[in-house]
Design a protein around this nucleic acid. Structure first.
Length: 594
RNA sequence: CGGGAUGUAGCUCAGCUUGGUCAGAGCGCACGGUUCGGGACCGUGAGGCCGGAGGUUCGAAUCCUCUCAUCCCGACCA
């Protein structure tokens, strides 16, 4: 008997089942009046307070109904734009065998950041931090001919990275949702076309999500490949620094950004090397003041340990070493600065007195930043406690094994393209696109046959969007002191209809009518039917961030009108009840254009 | 992984220095009443073995040791 009922779906009354999702009295949206103690950044705080997410463990979150709705909106925008390009959606597994990762060498490279696990047979697996291996092995088995190319495949999937320090809620989680797309082409030129297609698609996707963003040149990091761009949503809370030119369209991530090399800037008349006593001056600033020579005429010497080998890096005194560039120059896996303690123990010297002169005798290879080798008389440590050299000339007084771009660009530097002035800004990296080439297809021996019957490696690209992070970025850019103000495109619902007093039958019936009309017209609307005071419902509406709020109350009901308030702009309209549906469409249209 | 901090009611916190009516407040929740277009008010009530384990003590939320968790800064990172 019970089974029969279940089959017929009669256990829940149809009316309740249908409506409970859109009645505020039934919606599972636990809003918080007070600031959660655990949250620091705006998006984290507001997503918690608006009842959209809850923390389960550090960096691991549950999405509640409204949070999930937003997530799905973003996903659908992504799907729509990608499907337009001919890309096809698939779903790859989260649990992946270690063997596959050993083939590309990344089982080792990924290190502690990878969640690893064993099955009951003691075989090694990981929770996928990314999916190049698994998709390449799929393509290797299934795609044989150039006639099947190009192929664009994507998935939206949970990814796992055991971050050393998860933070900022869903902005940097250990479990997060990502869209990743992989392109397979028969040639490099084909790959570039796929890359450009994706680049343009990303622009459309992030525009539709209502984000202010920039596409910047980026380092390729652990994914590998040559050319890459990051899509960075501009936000104070962002963790990545972006460099851009005030004059031309050059923009790059701080890891990648270069500055124009001003060879003549450091030129002065060469003088003989001079040892000067600088007791107690441990920093460049100290010595600079003591000798009255500006920091840009200093050479900063830093010791690093790269894959177990000690080396020295030289940058100008006013510069910071860019460890990403250094890593790329050295081609090493692990890079760490040698601690001042260790320097003191092994060289009987405080780190502040390190210098390049005589380092070759110590068998320490020297890597010099380009800017350093154009200095024609610099101050540097003398490798002797309490002493510095003046007038050190590169090539004359010391040598180096390699010179390269090793410094981090700073605000005010010159643009490498046009020599305009560079500026910096903070951002949230919401997407990144890579030209991978054949890195993975070679490692996994993934081959197709071309039109001449010859075997070739697939030429690949990969393209990621942090979906959950994008949600956080949207909140960072669209909020005020009262809460979130969702762009219409990703809002969990387009509107809320509030009966100022739910106990007033006339009000609640009118509100219900408007709600049903809008719903029938195809809009996503919530009816706030809770028996709360109006203020409570307004506060919640602002916090949750419904783009449009329709209020039915005593102020207007006698006149046969309702109030419509736009969350983003704060604009209010008083319109007649009959016109609600048509006005609503107009308002939505105007909001979509913004 | 280094540095700092915090764990007491669903949430935000007080109490810990000086061990003994210290199991507290506000919000939230339940019930009753008054209110009703910007997080109202009054009353009543439910709810916590004070993160966990060990120790010191006649007695521990409070002191000591260990441990776990969380957050912040740094390092690290598609």
């Amino acid at each position: 008997m019970e089974i029969k009922l279940l089959k017929q779906g009669n256990l829940i009354p149809p009316a309740l089942r249908e409506e409970s999702f859109m009645l505020a009295s039934k919606l599972f949206v636990p809003t918080l009046k007070e600031e959660p103690a655990e949250a620091e950044v705006v998006s984290h705080r507001l997503l918690l307070r608006a009842g959209m997410i809850r923390k389960v463990s550090s960096g691991i979150y549950t999405f509640l109904p409204l949070g999930l709705k937003v997530l799905e909106k973003v996903k659908n925008i992504i799907r729509e734009e990608l499907d337009k390009t001919g890309a096809q959606e698939i779903l790859l597994p989260i649990v992946q065998p270690a063997d596959l990762w050993r083939e590309t060498g990344r089982w080792e490279v990924y290190g502690d950041e990878m969640f690893r696990l064993k099955d009951r047979h003691n075989r090694n697996f990981c929770l996928g931090p990314t999916h190049e291996e698994i998709i390449t092995s799929l393509i290797k088995l299934e795609i044989k001919s150039y006639k099947q190319l190009p192929l664009l495949l994507y998935q939206i999937q949970n990814k796992y990275r055991d971050e050393k320090r998860p933070r900022f809620g869903i902005m940097r989680g250990r479990e997060f949702i990502m869209k990743d797309l992989y392109s397979f082409d028969a040639s490099y030129s084909g790959m570039v076309k796929s890359y450009e297609l994706m680049y343009n698609t990303y622009v459309n996707i992030f525009k539709r999500c209502g984000l202010k963003f920039r596409a910047v040149e980026a380092d390729t990091g652990a994914i590998g490949g040559n050319i890459s761009h990051e899509f960075t949503a501009l936000a104070e809370a962002g963790e990545t620094e972006v460099v851009y030119c005030q004059n031309c369209d050059y923009a790059a991530s701080i890891e990648k950004a270069e500055s124009f090399l001003e060879k003549e800037k450091g030129k002065i008349e060469e003088r003989p090397l001079e040892l000067v006593s600088t007791p107690g001056a441990r920093t460049i600033n100290d010595v600079s003041k003591m000798l009255e020579i500006p920091p840009e005429r200093f050479i900063k010497t830093l010791l690093y340990e790269a894959d177990g080998k000690i080396l020295a890096v030289l940058v100008r005194g006013d510069r910071e070493v860019n460890e990403t560039k250094l890593k790329n120059t050295l081609g090493c896996l692990r890079l760490e600065m040698v601690s001042p303690m260790r320097i003191k123990e092994s060289m009987q010297l405080e780190a502040g007195f390190l210098g390049p002169v005589g380092l070759e005798k110590e068998n320490i290879p020297v890597y010099a930043d380009y800017e350093v080798i154009y200095l024609s008389g610099a101050v540097c440590g003398a490798n002797k406690q309490g002493y510095h050299y003046c007038n050190a000339v590169p090539g004359r007084d010391f040598t180096w094994v390699k010179s390269a771009d090793l410094h981090t660009v700073q605000k005010g530097d010159s643009c490498p393209r046009c020599q305009g002035i560079l500026n910096t800004t903070q951002g949230i990296e919401v997407g990144q696109v890579f030209q991978l080439g054949t890195k993975y297809s070679e490692a996994l021996n993934a081959i197709f046959v071309d039109e001449n019957g010859k075997e070739n490696f697939f030429v690949m690209g990969c393209y990621g969007i942090g979906v959950s992070r994008t949600v956080a970025a949207v909140v960072e850019q669209n909020h005020d002191e009262n809460g979130i103000a969702w762009p219409i495109s990703v809002a969990p619902y387009q509107a809320v209809v509030i009966a100022a007093s739910a106990k007033n039958e006339k009000q609640i019936n009118t509100a219900r009518k408007i709600y049903q009309d809008l719903k029938e017209a195809g809009w996503e609307v919530v009816l706030d039917d809770r028996e709360e005071r109006a203020g409570v419902k307004f506060k919640d509406a602002d916090l949750i961030g419904y783009p449009i709020r329709i209020t039915v109350g005593n102020k207007t009901i006698e006149k046969g009108t309702v109030d419509i308030k736009i969350r983003g702009s704060g604009k209010e309209y008083n319109i007649s009840m009959e016109a609600v549906c048509s006005e609503f469409s107009k308002i939505i249209n105007s909001l979509e254009k913004i």
